[in-house]
Design a protein around this nucleic acid. Structure first.
Lengths: 212, 212
DNA sequence: AAAATAGTGTCTGTGAGACACTATATT
DNA sequence: AATATAGTGTCTCACAGACACTATTTT
């Protein structure tokens, strides 16, 4: 589960409370319960709710990781997901769940994580980067109403590179995904227009990438 | 498993020989055997070899399909793959496997397929189309040495739209993935230059799509 | 010679990057 | 007034589309 905190891309890790890898940081996860999970997505949502106390606005299958080398207990098959959530939705909920915390994605590489979670995170980050280049997916890291400046900051945090405000405005216009609200918001200078997602729209995919 | 036959995109289906869906056409598949499959990819390759007699040059995880509605026997979790293979590699092998045959992708929608394979195929086709727009992936549908005309035909078959030969030549040049062979080949007009993949190169991804 | 396919030259169109410029807020 | 952030105008650049043109082969 990714989010943006202080204009830095963060990932939610939880500390394991049982062997194997007791005490290590790891991705939130668990097993499918065929009684209550109507699909693997439902299982992922249930586990996230249970382990982190929150439901992401976006959830997508990443990839299956499998084999006998990844869990000391033996052969395993795990389906990894990646999720996006606005950090504003987080603050209260997360406090109630002990041993869960947000880490800057850049700092994770030097941690000792459980299983092959280091590799899973790399893959997830890579996919998120790609999608940020050609789609509006990063809006799911923002609250329902947001400014162009916020969206720009989120995209830059994800792709690790500056983009032109102008390019982003062109895309916002062309995508037709958003409408202006009457509100404006202050941030130390001229007030910024608040946008929000039109209800029921799909995430636009562009046919060129940003940041060539 | 996709391939190109007579400049038309085809998919390999096999006829089921046991319930459920006895006699229906279906995707080749099977169960993981943790004794012999070191990973889910290995399992996919083994099942393809066993059910169709051939090994694709490209194999990629598509998506997990899950739930209790998709198999009358109860809850199931299936990982679908998509694969590309040159049709030239096929002709001999496939004859040895009864009840496997290539279908034009366009004709499949009207068939009665087993399980949710109709939906899986739609998703696979969609992903293949997208990748054909921004990458050189379609080369895996061609033999080791091929002409620009052949590659153009493959891409057009996949995306269902004509592209400019000029655009493709620009990409071939820019990708630096191929080298010319000394051979040329006849096809009813001026002889065409044969290209082949440089050994060990990665599939280039472009930052614009074809067919805007 | 005619037809077919291969390949090039070059113009247009689209949208990203760059960046100066205007607009409006806070201090 | 100075500064900070929001937003626009407009030029350049890269690359896809279009399409006429040349090149080389078969019939």
């Amino acid at each position: 589960m990714f989010s943006i905190k202080n204009n830095v891309l963060h990932l939610l890790l939880i500390r394991r409370a049982a062997p194997p890898f007791d005490g290590c940081w790891s991705l939130p996860g668990g097993f499918i319960d065929i009684e209550q999970d109507s699909s693997v997505e439902a299982a992922a949502m249930r586990k996230l709710q249970q382990k982190t106390g929150l439901q992401p606005g976006y959830l997508e299958q990443l990839e299956v990781f499998s084999g006998k080398g990844r869990d000391p207990r033996g052969y395993s098959v795990s389906l990894a997901f990646f999720a996006l959530v606005p950090y504003s939705a987080v603050s209260s909920n997360i406090a109630t769940v002990s041993q869960a915390s947000w880490w800057p994605v850049q700092d994770i590489a030097s941690l000792q994580l459980a299983f092959d979670h280091q590799e899973i995170i790399q893959r997830a980050h890579h996919r998120l980067k790609q999608k940020a280049l050609y789609s509006m997916l990063p809006v799911y890291c923002l609250p329902p109403a947001f400014t162009v400046g916020q969206l720009k900051a989120v995209i830059e945090a994800i792709i690790g590179k500056e983009i032109q405000r102008k390019s982003l405005m062109r895309r916002i216009e062309a995508s037709n995904m958003f409408h202006l609200t009457e509100q404006k918001v202050s941030s130390g200078g001229r007030q910024a227009q608040l946008y929000q997602l039109k209800p029921g729209v799909d995430i636009t995919h562009f046919n060129r990438n940003l940041g060539d």
